[in-house]
């Protein structure tokens, strides 16, 4: 065994007794930041997560939202359609990291006993979940930001740079609602079942919320159940896009907050009780 070399960090705890293990606020903050850094590092080293979830939305937008849709006569007659397609693809870009990045990883790590170990260790309360959500928001920023860059370069949009930035910011700020749904699934189902179940939410959330094409009336009334519909509505409000029957954005804010609180609360309750 090697000799133990002590660095300045290794100094014997200076305070004796029980208080010697008390954490200063600076140390607690350091713990949260380290947890976030490691979560990001860990996620970035998984190409199977980064490529389809983070890097793919921009090329998809360029192919379908710019080249294919741009060639239609409707797009030429109604230039605001380009803005609408951009917000739809940007919403999809945010959904992936929030839903899969949080839910699937939690389910797998629960199965492997990592959550149990973190509960046993003095990991600061909530650090693990906050790190997951921050990681998802950072990846969502990259994914939606890439779509915004693609839109600015070739999307024939009529939005200013400030509006593009604001749309990305609004979508990322709303993404915890999707993360809460991912969390809810990930805390209830195994690592094997969670990806499949998450897909059952992901695809309807994209296609049944009217992000890319107008829905038939029968489906339109149900689109409000999907948080993506409300996220898109907020983004469209920033783009000053108006269409008949669109919801008041303030209602969308309330719905997204409710989704975050209900699904997040149920997931936290489950984690606290079962782990």
């Amino acid at each position: 065994m090697n000799a133990v070399t002590l660095s300045p960090l290794d100094a014997v705890p200076p305070v004796s007794g029980k208080n010697r293990y008390a954490m200063s606020w600076a140390r607690v903050l350091h713990a949260y930041l380290t947890e976030i850094r490691m979560e990001l590092t860990s996620a970035m080293r998984v190409p199977a997560f980064v490529i389809p979830i983070v890097l793919l939305p921009a090329p998809l937008y360029f192919l379908f939202g710019v080249i294919v849709a741009g060639a239609s006569p409707d797009a030429k007659a109604h230039p605001e359609i380009a803005n609408w397609l951009f917000t739809g693809f940007a919403t999809m870009a945010v959904l992936g990291p929030a839903l899969f990045g949080v839910g699937c990883s939690i389910a797998i790590e629960r199965d492997q006993g990592l959550l149990r170990l973190k509960r046993a260790m003095p990991s600061p309360s909530g650090a693990y979940l906050i790190a997951k959500i921050v990681m998802a928001m950072i990846f969502a920023t990259v994914a939606a930001g890439s779509v915004a860059v693609a839109a600015a370069l070739g999307g024939k949009i009529t939005l200013s740079a400030a509006q593009l930035v604001a749309i990305v910011a609004v979508l990322v700020a709303a993404s915890p609602a999707c993360a809460a749904i991912g969390l809810f699934i990930g805390t209830r189902f195994s690592g094997t079942a969670t990806p499949g179940l998450t897909n059952l939410v992901y695809f309807p959330a994209i296609y049944l919320s009217g992000l890319f094409f107008p829905l038939p009336k029968a489906l339109q009334r149900w689109s409000v159940i999907w948080p993506t519909q409300h996220m898109d509505r907020l983004a469209l409000a920033v783009a000053h896009f108006k269409a008949p029957g669109m919801l008041d954005p303030r209602l969308s804010v309330v719905v997204l907050m409710a989704v975050t609180l209900v699904f997040g609360g149920l997931a936290l309750r489950r984690l606290a009780r079962v782990g």
Partner: peptide
Amino acid sequence: CSYYAHPLSPDA
């Protein structure tokens, strides 16, 4: 190590 008040360095 980040979970503790006075940890060893990771290398130690």
